[in-house]
Write a protein that binds this DNA or RNA. Structure first.
Lengths: 125, 125
DNA sequence: GGGACAATTCAATATTTCATGAGTAGTTGA
DNA sequence: TCAACTACTCATGAAATATTGAATTGTCCC
């Protein structure tokens, strides 16, 4: 991921509804298992309390930045997270903040269950 | 770092000049060693080709988001990176993208010199 | 004190982004 | 085919953000 891609991704994430949307899709991705990857636009709108047109606007922004992908299934459009893109952004930021002092980041250490539990209890909003 | 802090940080970084500014300060922080931490506003303006007032605006945005700190020295104001804040943002994103599939991120692996060299040759802009 | 310098603040303007609701296109099943 | 459904697009106005240059504040050196 280069600077301009990172900039697009940052702009896309720098909005409360879109950040919540990403977090929702990430959670869905891990909870749903392999079988049911992604969520339909209508499901997302209901989960976040957004109007259809507003959601569509935000989905387009995230998809334009490459952070999510979509596929059509019957009359639904299923959106799912594109983990490599999100990972690319994190890597990009990591290079910019971690070079001189890797110890700053707790996430650089091997992950454990305790660390995961710190955040899993928080509500989405 | 909670969701709102992350949102502030993302908004602050989602601008080309500010992202360049952060990268400049990170590079300065690692190249300068312990002695000369940070850069004066004038130095930054010269390095990035920004007008004084525009730079001041961007510096205020970054400082408001907690990503940089400042101290006054004689008639200069020295700005330096606040690595923990940047690290907190990365950690926040990591939780949101890395829970289900840590392998996605190259940065989760122990860092080595080869990895560092991948990016150090790239120009700032 | 007076001039030069560093940086910030302010006001005015331009630009971008966001939100809303109405309307449109494609899909499904009776 | 028709009605119901899903999702998207478009036009409008509102709000937030960015940019510019002039004015201001504080510091240094003579």
């Amino acid at each position: 991921m280069d600077r301009d891609q990172a900039l697009n991704a940052l702009s896309a994430l720098a909005h409360a509804d879109r950040l919540d949307l990403i977090r929702l899709l990430v959670r869905q991705g891990q909870e749903g298992g392999q079988g049911q990857e992604g969520m339909a636009a209508g499901q997302i709108a209901a989960a976040l309390g957004l109007s259809a047109s507003r959601l569509s606007f935000h989905l387009a922004a995230l998809e334009g930045a490459g952070l999510i992908g979509s596929r059509k299934v019957a009359r639904n459009v299923i959106y799912s997270i594109r983990a490599p893109a999100l990972g690319g952004l994190v890597s990009f930021l990591m290079v910019d903040c971690c070079r001189n002092d890797p110890g700053v980041l707790a996430c650089c250490a091997p992950r454990d269950e305790g660390q995961r539990d710190v955040q899993s209890g928080s509500s989405l909003r």
